[in-house]
Design a protein around this nucleic acid. Structure first.
Lengths: 335, 335
DNA sequence: ACAAAAACTGAAAACGTTGTTAATATGTGA
DNA sequence: TCACATATTAACAACGTTTTCAGTTTTTGT
């Protein structure tokens, strides 16, 4: 019943050569005569040959598998990133394995699997990792300039700088930031601090009421925050949203109050994913484009796997300002 | 530099036995004396032995890998299902590989990988699959009663029946359904038809205005739909939401109009995931619980893999009514 | 105490590849 | 035509396991 798979030995038999010749032919080795090579390849194709993965791995001592640890599966931005990473990896000889278990369990699985490398999504690493000898690349937060595993992170400071700069150039002075300021999430803290620093740099005053802690990163958090904000007498002419989802809520809240974007109020969002172009108002945004992020992550982990070292060990990706339709020059009426 | 991994031969050497004995000891074979077995296991542990995956696969002719094809990554319900499937698989000797590529490319990858089985998320299969000899299980839609690959699906008809029945028992007569009626998505069609059939069965009239096509499954789609609905003079006493996300929007729209849930209006949502308990109003819902769904999917694919056959080939999972806080008896005032 | 049975251990084949080395065929220059 | 270089192919070890079967030791019953 068990469908016997065709092996190089089978091919060898019907081609009338030794199986090592078949191996070389299929690997396009110069050691075999072009004519026989061609013949063997044809036979292999005809027989529907697929090389045995396990056997290849056994001899090559490599699994060609990259593990991805993604403990917080339920966030759109990360979903998109995973999609992109997966696509990127499938362009290489490597494959991706996903684990959504907690970090220690995931690492354990991957150790059993003997994956060649691991990508870890973790926005907030505190506890020490048990030392593994598997190349491990973290996408997330870079508190320190140096760490014992390489980190890829967005340059949040520069992102906020560019966002504020862009708004300032459009004439905005009253800019609000709606994001999560929770102490424990240092990625969010960096955005928050980055915003204040940028405002300072461009000599813009930032009112306390324009700094709103959404206490979360979801649609509803943005919606609630913007509702409170807009119901006060003085409102900003521009808003920076701390995440894709938050900004979705912000837009909705604004529209509900019959305000126009960007005529009455400009919105710029953190994050940079393609979906932003498809929103009710295409969202101008600042952030590292996911596709670039994915490319860099994959490039890095593979380099790390293959060369066992990686410089720089902390890489801050540059943000890109994607101008779509949610920002405009400040409306003079509101000045 | 290449960190040499410890093998059973290394263990054998320092334990002073043959490596075949080590193999048996580590596999807890009854063929080796308990004392030596214990000693060998201790040594193995101390040396940090990890069996070589490729070698094991090579001899066992199985990869112990299940492939999961998930082309539409950006939906919360499916994210949760993936998480659950992954958890479930990690309880078995199998592991999961994820592919978010289009179906043909994914299948190709998995064939190369020689995975033991494939789970396919596809809500709408039209085109014929190229025949593979890899066991393939589809989670999605069952147009026909019979197909050439096994299907796991929710019993949408029964789900709607139970939802309507529950609402009817609470005294509701004016019930609305807000969902996606797109012709091409037959899973949505089944929900829609199921609702109408159920209303009929319980002798409830369903007004045309109470049947709203959200034209999408997202938060905003539900929000828009319920807004339109509630701004008419006559409103329903209960609403059935077509998906988790839609229902989120429905709740928000209701609250915005200062209506109370469930005092003024009851809401029951399709889908059944744990997050529903954490919403602003914990959502009463009907649907196959994700954890059960995941269990069944994993159980089935493994059975299929190991026995090469599976009955019944189309399995409709029974929905469960999870009573939380969004439904109550009809308010007499509105009768 | 001795044969037979039972318990245990070791040797070796097998899984399907890759890569190295040895063998053979083919071609070259004198 | 012969020695020798070169192109081509074959043989075989190795990768790290599992499993079968043949040995060896220990236990058991008489």
């Amino acid at each position: 019943m068990k469908e016997m798979n065709v092996t190089i030995k089978d091919i060898a038999k019907i081609a009338g050569v030794s199986y090592s010749t078949v191996s070389k032919a299929l690997n396009n080795s110069p050691l075999v005569k072009p004519a026989t090579k061609k013949r063997i390849i044809e036979i292999a194709e005809e027989m529907g040959y697929e090389p045995n993965f396990a056997a290849q791995r056994l001899v090559s001592k490599q699994t060609q598998i990259i593990g991805l640890i993604w403990p917080t599966i339920e966030r759109v931005v990360l979903s998109t990133l995973v999609t992109n990473i997966s696509k990127e990896i499938s362009k290489t000889p490597y494959s991706m394995i996903l684990s959504v278990d907690p970090i220690p369990a995931s690492l354990d699985t991957f150790r059993r699997f003997q994956v060649d490398g691991v990508i870890l999504f973790e926005e907030n690493i505190e506890k020490k990792m048990e030392q593994t000898n598997i190349p491990l690349l973290v996408y997330g937060v870079s508190n320190k300039e140096q760490s014992n595993y390489p980190i890829i992170d967005a340059n949040h400071g520069q992102a906020m700088d560019e966002a504020v700069c862009y708004l300032a150039e459009l004439g905005h002075h009253h800019i609000a930031y709606l994001g999560d300021f929770s102490e424990i999430d240092s990625m969010q803290m960096q955005k928050y601090k980055g915003f204040k620093k940028a405002m300072d740099k461009y000599n813009l005053k930032v009112k306390d009421e324009f700094l709103i802690n959404t206490k979360g990163l979801d649609w509803y958090d943005g919606y609630t925050a913007v509702s409170n904000l807009l119901d006060t007498d003085e409102r900003p002419t521009a808003i920076v949203g701390g995440s894709y989802d938050i900004s979705g809520g912000i837009i909705r809240g604004i529209k509900e109050r019959k305000l126009r974007i960007p005529d009455d109020i400009s919105v710029i969002s953190y994050d940079n994913i393609p979906q932003m172009a498809n929103m009710e108002t295409p969202l101008t945004s600042i952030g590292v484009p996911v596709d670039e992020l994915a490319k860099e992550i994959v490039r890095s982990i593979i380099e790390y796997v293959e060369n066992k070292e990686l410089y720089p060990s902390v890489k801050k990706m540059n943000p890109v300002l994607s101008i779509r339709k949610s920002c405009g020059p400040v409306n003079e009426l509101f000045k």
